[in-house]
Write a protein that binds this DNA or RNA. Structure first.
Lengths: 136, 136
DNA sequence: GTGCGTGCAAACCGTTTGCAATCGG
DNA sequence: CCGATTGCAAACGGTTTGCACGCAC
């Protein structure tokens, strides 16, 4: 099956290490910036490629969110996320998974077959609640 | 309050007319293409501006979806959508709104305050179910 | 030595914006 | 007439890609 030999490069190790130390569900760009501090000459393309590759191999998860760019998640176990409407930060949510029930209760119009669903929470992070911008 | 006088331009009327005849939750680009058939010289920027403006005025709704680009919805009443994983088409979903309950059952990590949520369904449209690509 | 992986820059795609020209009120 | 609105083209931002070089094996 998997007869293409993956090479163990320095860049791959560094990107993996740096990403594993970040627990903010970073975007590829955020990982790139973080990696550059240790390894300033790394190419943006390499970071993007390595993260996308890891996601395809199922080692990490690529999150699609409504507002922001794609984020990468080290946690593979299914769970929901909350996005801060102030700064875009992402955090995990403790809530039971209701995808199954939700999807079964849904009927798509125009002949659509509903197979699954995506739940995403919106809120405010601790920092943005402190700022007196638009918190009610 | 609203002391800025809006002008009634030909472009505005055409974009509005064309959009109202489309019931596919089109993206701005899709509306642009449709408008161009009637009014070939319209600027892409104008269509994008008019749709964004109408959404800000609350006349239409701008949908943020996880995969695709923003879509525009003529229906203002809250409801869910299903996105075809084959072709990206969007359709309305008949299901009761559970945002309130869901949000209240959710606890954000890292000091996040959960305020609301976004539910989005995934499925297959009639056409894509017919194609023997990757339907199970 | 072979060819996978990298770095670079350019392309990409949907969208937004600066600006001069235009046209609605 | 005056300024809101348009058209154009360029900029934008995040991401992907083509290609020559270099390094892992």
């Amino acid at each position: 099956m998997n007869n293409n030999q993956k090479r163990n490069t320095l860049q791959k190790r560094i990107v993996s290490d740096v990403f594993c130390e970040m627990h903010n569900h970073p975007s590829a760009g955020m990982v790139y910036e973080a990696v550059r501090e240790k390894y300033p000459n790394i190419s943006r393309a390499t970071v993007y490629r390595l993260l996308a590759e890891a996601a395809e191999e199922g080692k990490i998860k690529r999150l699609k969110l409504t507002d922001a760019n794609d984020r990468y998640d080290i946690t593979l176990k299914p769970h929901y996320h909350v996005v801060c409407r102030g700064c875009g930060a992402v955090a995990d949510v403790e809530a039971e998974q209701v995808d199954e029930e939700l999807s079964q209760s849904a009927v798509g119009c125009e002949g659509f077959l509903v197979e699954g669903c995506h739940v995403e929470f919106v809120g405010l992070c601790e920092g943005c609640r402190g700022n007196s911008m638009e918190n009610n």
